[in-house]
Amino acid sequence: MEQFIQDWGYIALFLYSFGGGFLALAIAGAFSYAGDLNIYICVAVAGVSNFIGSQFLFYMGKYNKAYVEDMMKNHTKKIALVKVLLKKYGIFIVFIQKYIYGVKTLIPLVMGVSEYNPYKFMILNIMASILWACVIGYISFVAGEFLMSLADKFQYMGLIIVFVIIFFLISNFNKKRKKAKNSEV
């Protein structure tokens, strides 16, 4: 398992951080504490990936407005929240959004659609991505001992949790499918 983590850990971290998630960086920080990964490389990989992902979303909003606006029609409440946050916090929202689940992907999209200056966004995004990676990486590295002790205590609990999650996903999918089938009739 350690060799698998060493071989694929940075790639998994890059892919997960591209979408803005910090769970992979937290896990990588714990693995760094255990000696399986290098914390400096983890912070660099996560920061670069997060920066690229946010830039991708910004430019998708900038150059594919029709598609993004059509996609965002399903998220009107979140879009309204994003606009309020942008007005209230200004440029600091680029820093804050990295930590808010549910809006961290919408903020770069909305800023891209709203004709925000791309160079200004890039500079803010670089700084925010570096700060985000350093903060989450440091906290998870420092908390590594605690996280590893939990993993030792509950090593079989993970399998139970996975099975419970799969059960709920399947039952939820079946409920939605039955509901859609009944609404068609």
Score class of each variant (00 low, 15 high):
residue 79 I to M: 13
residue 134 C to Q: 09
residue 130 I to M: 04
residue 43 V to E: 03
residue 76 T to W: 12
residue 44 A to M: 13
residue 73 K to N: 09
residue 78 K to M: 03
residue 91 I to R: 15
residue 50 N to Q: 00
residue 86 L to H: 00
residue 140 S to G: 14
residue 122 M to D: 02
residue 138 Y to H: 08
residue 35 G to W: 08
residue 27 I to K: 04
residue 13 L to F: 01
residue 159 L to N: 04
residue 13 L to W: 07
residue 174 N to M: 15
residue 101 Y to P: 00
residue 137 G to E: 00
residue 33 Y to G: 01
residue 164 V to W: 13
residue 101 Y to W: 02
residue 184 E to T: 10
residue 13 L to K: 03
residue 86 L to A: 05
residue 104 K to Y: 04
residue 85 L to H: 08
residue 185 V to N: 15
residue 37 L to D: 02
residue 29 G to H: 07
residue 185 V to S: 09
residue 45 V to G: 04
residue 125 N to T: 13
residue 99 Y to V: 12
residue 34 A to T: 05
residue 148 M to C: 05
residue 146 F to H: 07
residue 124 L to Y: 06
residue 122 M to K: 05
residue 30 A to K: 15
residue 152 D to C: 02
residue 142 V to Q: 11
residue 160 I to E: 09
residue 137 G to N: 00
residue 118 P to F: 06
residue 101 Y to S: 06
residue 181 K to D: 14
residue 101 Y to K: 03
residue 69 E to F: 04
residue 142 V to K: 15
residue 137 G to K: 00
residue 64 N to I: 02
residue 67 Y to E: 08
residue 146 F to D: 00
residue 150 L to M: 15
residue 28 A to D: 07
residue 8 W to H: 09
residue 46 A to R: 12
residue 173 F to W: 09
residue 95 F to N: 09
residue 31 F to N: 05
residue 40 Y to M: 00
residue 85 L to A: 14
residue 164 V to M: 11
residue 162 V to A: 15
residue 87 K to T: 06
residue 146 F to T: 10
residue 12 A to S: 15
residue 120 K to D: 07
residue 4 F to N: 15
residue 104 K to H: 10
residue 121 F to I: 11
residue 11 I to G: 07
residue 13 L to Y: 03
residue 70 D to K: 15
residue 116 Y to M: 13
residue 5 I to C: 07
residue 35 G to H: 08
residue 29 G to I: 01
residue 105 T to K: 01
residue 151 A to E: 11
residue 148 M to V: 11
residue 78 K to A: 08
residue 60 M to P: 03
residue 90 G to D: 11
residue 3 Q to M: 03
residue 1 M to L: 13
residue 111 M to K: 04
residue 78 K to W: 01
residue 148 M to D: 13
residue 121 F to G: 05
residue 134 C to L: 14
residue 96 I to L: 14
residue 66 A to Q: 13
residue 65 K to R: 13
residue 67 Y to N: 11
residue 142 V to D: 07
residue 165 I to Y: 11
residue 176 K to C: 14
residue 41 I to R: 01
residue 148 M to A: 13
residue 48 V to H: 02
residue 94 V to N: 00
residue 118 P to Y: 04
residue 18 F to Q: 06
residue 92 F to H: 04
residue 180 A to D: 07
residue 150 L to Q: 11
residue 1 M to W: 14
residue 159 L to K: 05
residue 185 V to Y: 15
residue 178 K to M: 12
residue 103 V to F: 03
residue 141 F to E: 00
residue 145 E to C: 04
residue 91 I to T: 11
residue 100 I to G: 07
residue 58 F to T: 08
residue 80 A to M: 10
residue 79 I to T: 11
residue 175 K to M: 06
residue 99 Y to L: 08
residue 29 G to M: 00
residue 131 L to P: 00
residue 49 S to I: 03
residue 50 N to K: 01
residue 164 V to N: 07
residue 14 F to P: 06
residue 83 K to F: 03
residue 181 K to F: 05
residue 50 N to A: 03
residue 30 A to Y: 13
residue 183 S to W: 12
residue 19 G to E: 14
residue 91 I to F: 14
residue 38 N to P: 13
residue 121 F to S: 10
